[in-house]
Amino acid sequence: MTEGTGTAEQGSVADLSTRTPTRSGDLSTWQAMRRSWQAYALLAPVFILLLIFNYYPPILGLLRAFYRWRPGVEASFVGLQHFGVYFTSPETPRELFNMFKLLAFFFFSGAVIPFIMAVLIFRIRDTESKELYRLFLIIPMLVPLIVVILLWKQIYDPNLGVINGLLEQFGLGFLARNWLGDTATALYAIMFMGFPWVSGVGTLIYLGGLGQISESIFDACEVDGCTGLRRTLRIDLPLVLGQVRLMTILAVIAGVTSFQTILVLTDGGPGFATMVPGLTMFHKAFRTQQFGYAASIGMVLFVITFTATLAVNRTVHPAVEDVRH
């Protein structure tokens, strides 16, 4: 970083370290480190906290996935047993399938829909309505997530819910059902929560990305007669691919790891209809005290998210804006 060399040239009181070239051997590195004791001292509290509470737990989790483990009992090594049990369990294919369905849907609701919304808002000419739309995008975000989930639970309620109420009002009472309690609809009801999925961080992030594209590109594009859908696909989309990548990764992470909504709405039920691996991990740990088994599921989820994130990062490359060509 340029700031670092800047301070060194000025021979500051605080940063004498770079006066000694660090390349010339171990001894001078040691000397430089001793001279920079202040920097290390200032960072010490952060690193002590991180070591105990942020480095140690994930490493411990990776190790304990191979152990039988519960509070107050000596952990015993069981090798790959947990993984064997998990992948041969009759519920596992179903919950993995549920997870991939949710993941695919989260890509649609979290990455695709907000993009369409952002492009539409971005092209609105009238700046006052543009600001108003931005404001209205934010309002639903001011409601805490748990309240949103509990509200939707009420909306789906078989007796008091507004969805069944509306259906009956329009003479469609035969369609009314226990949305979250019916094996056929429960998972789709979970997906439908948050309809129409436009408000929230996604649209704002895309709007931020579109705002960074320089005006001259749009001008050039208009002169060439590139408008509407063609412009969206040829100009807007390639230039916000960075944001698309981010939203895709967030959708993957949400699909694989977030089970809070399911825990509150159905707790995996009815039966195992809405079970996902994350929720199984939670149940195994906190209901049956199988912490080692839970840690092994955590490790499987980590491998899935890590692989998927890497794959998305490798395949999606944002276009570089170059006005001169």
Binding site: L60, G61, P71, F291, G298, L301
Partner: peptide, 10 residues
Amino acid sequence: VLSFIPAYMV
């Protein structure tokens, strides 16, 4: 998800 269970134990 990787740290949730072990963090609880810690």
